[in-house]
Design a binder for these strands. Structure first.
Lengths: 381, 381
DNA sequence: TCCGTTATTTCTGTCGTAGAAATAACGCAT
DNA sequence: ATGCGTTATTTCTACGACAGAAATAACGGA
């Protein structure tokens, strides 16, 4: 079975339908700068192979012929996304738009490469079993640290790794294409293609959890540099009277916003250890100490968003991560602080909250796999 | 004389040689993803018409055939750039790479459109006289405020203007192509094509002068939004103990860094009005009050650069504007403050200081004219 | 019923490009 | 001195991706 190479325009078309579908050929022509004839020519092979479908119902504009929008067939393929932490591999099985179909976890019983490869393989096999007859098109893996060419983990402090050709090892073991990426970059990729900010050319991602992560999309491209993985957004000075972080900064973003720091501050006031969920419940119920901490966190978050908005000029900010429940008790405070630092005439920044929490990390990894799959896509002749 | 339309690749070639020349055809092929055959074909019409020149000396690599780098003929055309303020039109005559050949000013004796058009026309006629036999290819104009489509000044508070089709008026008057742009955007464009940061994909521009300006280039594109012209970088919170700005912010970037604010602070300490140059001289000589103000300004500037570097992830920051002399007395303090807010493992950010001072504004306008000229370029058949 | 508008398809010619081959000009080894 | 490998550039040719032109489709409104 010979495979046809896709030209740039055909690949762009597939990308646009995946991200923005359902969408008419006329709109695609306008977006991609291609003629109507080209849209017919380029979309036909996808339709013939069942990768695209035409909407059952035509869409009528104000006047003229109704459109028959194109969409991808989301069950055409499944993907597996894995977020790797020091304790476990967290997996998700998704459809073609990174929507979660199933989740699973596999604990790590060691950090040496063989054991991690073993654990990941077990997890993938388990999720493949769930997928059943649905083909798995690839696996994405996200790690805190640096990855070269989406193949080699060049630095992963939480595992004590340097220069591990993890993709080669996993591909040999699983017989599936593997794409590895830094965890914040992966999560940002998912937001770029499948999240509420996907229609925006420029947006930022702030993740709140064990630490504070920061991702950026400008001109519809994820910003990645050699410093990706250092967590540059994690130590911004936000409140000169705030608590200390582990690096000795007073009032930086990690000190103000991370789950461990918030729990520690409230725990000190309560004289006992306290879980994050309980902190949020206490704050919601008006507990003075909890409220003091979450209000300060809200103000700091608003200030951070103000710096982001004024310096990157993004249209939207997405809040994500396992600590995202903070928004429920501190969201209004954050928005007020953001408004205070913004010119009143400036366009309001959209703020979206991704309620997937911790699940957004594995979903990000799946998005990287989907993106890799599109880059490798060929059509059977 | 019929004119040949340029294809995208030919135009891209001209852009690359302009920005990065002298450069070999082999290197251009690698940069643009074109075959050697295409480079020969595409560069030939430019060479035949004298727009490109081959370097007199071939350049020998480690091995293989020597290269004959291509460059633009910088005296092929002249351009005029004009920075418009409330008091005067400041002009510069430049070559094809926005290098200054002559400067001139024309005071404004009113802000109504006719008077401003009159003043600009006088200035252009004067500079055309200086250019002599060298053809002026176009005029760029930069204004504080918003411009639509580089034709219509939609908002210029310093002139009290709204929706003035200034390009049409000036073209009718001067018979030259006119391109108008926001002043910070124009200055950023000049740095992008002709400044020390031109090899970088991402860099920021901070201008210090009557106010604080901020420009950004990401993925080799200047970031412009509907908020361009509002001066979003001018009121970043930098020092909670700093002086007030006119908007009532304490310690924002304008309060810490602008010329009027610095002069006012030192003037209060001295009990008399004091000019900026004198402040800088006093600080350089170790005067306690002046040093206190400039040191605080340096720390604030360093903190601002830290936010920029950590949130935009740029490779370089260019400091520009008429207040750039501050770097001489506060540069080391700024760099120390920047380093304090940066992860020690992060790639150092390059800091470039554009010593053109006020002249960089008009030079920015010239760069916009050059860019417009390239967009309109056709070749005689 | 006709017209204008917008969506999509079919057919054809063209133009911009890469591939193949050749030539150019070195440094280095024999 | 000669040959080889490497890198730069040119010449020639075939091809494929595309837009243009024309036709068809499917409405709403006069």
């Amino acid at each position: 079975m010979t495979q046809l190479e896709l030209g740039d325009s055909a690949r762009e078309l597939a990308r646009e339908v995946l991200i923005h579908g359902p969408i008419s050929r006329a709109d695609l022509g306008r977006r991609l700068g291609l003629s109507p004839a080209s849209l017919t020519r380029l979309s036909k092979p996808f339709l013939d192979r069942g990768l695209f479908v035409e909407a059952a119902e035509a869409v009528q504009g104000a006047t003229g012929r109704p459109a028959r929008p194109l969409d991808v067939r989301v069950d055409a393929q499944r993907f597996i996304g894995i977020k790797l932490t020091g304790e476990a591999a967290h997996g998700v099985l998704t459809d073609l738009r990174a929507s979660s179909l199933a989740q699973a976890e596999q604990p790590l019983d060691g950090h040496d490469v063989d054991r991690v490869v073993e654990a990941i393989s077990r997890l993938v096999d388990g999720l493949r079993g769930v997928a059943g007859a649905g083909a798995v098109g690839g696996v994405g893996l996200s790690v805190g640290g640096n990855v070269a060419g989406q193949r080699v983990v060049t630095r992963a402090p939480f595992l004590g790794w340097r220069d591990v050709a993890l993709a080669d090892l996993l591909e040999a073991r699983l017989g599936l294409p593997i794409d590895i990426e830094n965890d914040v970059t992966a999560l940002t990729t998912a937001e770029q293609w499948f999240g509420p900010a996907r229609a925006h050319d420029a947006f930022a991602v702030v993740t709140v959890g064990a630490g504070v992560g920061y991702g950026l999309v400008m001109h519809d491209r994820v910003v990645t540099t050699p410093d990706t993985g250092l967590g540059l957004g994690g130590h911004l000075p936000l409140d000169p009277n705030g608590p200390l972080c582990l690096d000795g900064h007073r009032g930086c973003s990690t000190a103000m916003l991370s789950i461990p720091s918030i729990c520690a501050q409230v725990g000190i006031a309560l004289g006992r250890e306290v879980a994050y969920d309980e902190v949020l419940d206490l704050a919601a119920a008006g507990h003075p100490a909890a409220r003091s901490v979450t209000d300060a966190a809200g103000r700091a978050l608003g200030r951070m968003m103000g710096y982001i908005a004024n310096l990157t000029m993004v249209e939207a900010i997405v809040l994500s991560g396992e600590g995202v429940g903070l928004w429920r008790v501190a969201g209004e405070t954050a928005l007020a602080a953001l408004a205070a630092d913004r010119d009143p005439e400036a366009t309001p920044v959209e703020v979206h909250v991704d309620s997937a929490g911790f699940g957004s990390w594995a979903r990000g990894a799946a998005a990287v796999a989907i993106q890799g799959s599109l880059g490798r896509l060929r059509l059977s002749a």
